[in-house]
């Protein structure tokens, strides 16, 4: 589904990603872990099409298409979803209007007619239940005045609405208490299907108790320095990142 080959990227001329290689197949959950500043969010940003990140080398294929030259909206319509670490507040734009516009743009891309108002509302209600958010929340402006937990739930709600093939969840666990974390993880698990995939980016092992990964990768200094099964996350939790740093030094 996703093939990243020797990807190098920089911000303001400073190289952050120094040759990333990663393959993600349908049905898989990958976790990317790493210390602060290792390039985790930059990787998520490159995949979603952040314009300030300069890609200098390498390729990213998504469902057989080179996506590096695609506009962010087209990547989204192709089925790539980014759950933001810091969801943006957009005062004045109602959640309903926002998500309906997005959904209909996705449908247009697939040559489907726009959803009728009643079908749309029905879908909304179903998906709201999934992440236990209230209709009240969807009547407000996008993320405006939402608590940290509400913002993250809202990300998963949007993911449910747009039904992406690949979801990249950037530090979705940050700022969540244990109850919200369970709700968010539960939502992600319910959305798992054999034909979609998830990349979970996280600093801590905690989230991986609830979203169990098939693969764990350690990103350090712009490169994936270690890949293994889910046991790697536990090892990291126990020993910390210094252990990896030392291993690399050797």
């Amino acid at each position: 589904m996703l093939q990243i080959k020797n990807l190098k990227a920089a911000i303001n001329g400073k190289e952050i990603l120094k040759g990333i290689n990663l393959n993600v197949n349908a049905g898989e959950v990958h976790a990317i872990m790493g210390p602060n500043g290792s390039g985790k969010s930059t990787l998520a940003g490159v995949l979603a099409g952040r314009e300030y990140i300069e890609v200098n080398h390498g390729s990213v294929f998504f469902n057989g298409k080179d996506i590096l030259d695609m506009a962010p909206e087209d990547r989204s319509r192709e089925g790539l979803f980014l759950g933001f670490q810091y969801p943006v507040e957009i005062p004045g734009v109602s959640m309903v209007n926002f998500i309906r516009t997005a959904l209909n743009e996705h449908r247009k891309y697939k040559n489907l007619p726009p959803l009728s108002a009643s079908d749309f509302l029905k879908t909304m209600r179903e998906k709201q239940e999934l992440v236990e958010i209230t209709a009240k929340m969807t009547n407000r402006s996008v993320n405006e005045g939402f608590s940290g937990g509400e913002k993250k739930k809202n990300e998963i709600f949007q993911m449910a609405m747009l039904e992406p093939k690949l979801s990249i969840l950037d530090e979705t666990d940050s700022g969540l208490d244990i109850d919200a974390l369970k709700i968010v993880a539960n939502g992600v698990n319910k959305l798992r299907r054999p034909d979609n995939a998830t990349i979970v980016i996280t600093h801590y092992q905690r989230l991986l108790d609830y979203i169990v990964p098939d693969f764990v990768h350690v990103l350090y200094n712009g490169q994936i320095v270690k890949s293994a099964g889910k046991e790697l996350a536990l090892e990291l939790e126990e020993k910390g990142y210094d252990w990896i740093k030392k291993e690399i030094a050797v």
Partner: peptide, 10 residues
């Protein structure tokens, strides 16, 4: 960017 990442055109 947030809006575009949800598939809404520029």
């Amino acid at each position: 960017f947030y809006m575009r990442s949800r598939g809404i055109s520029k």
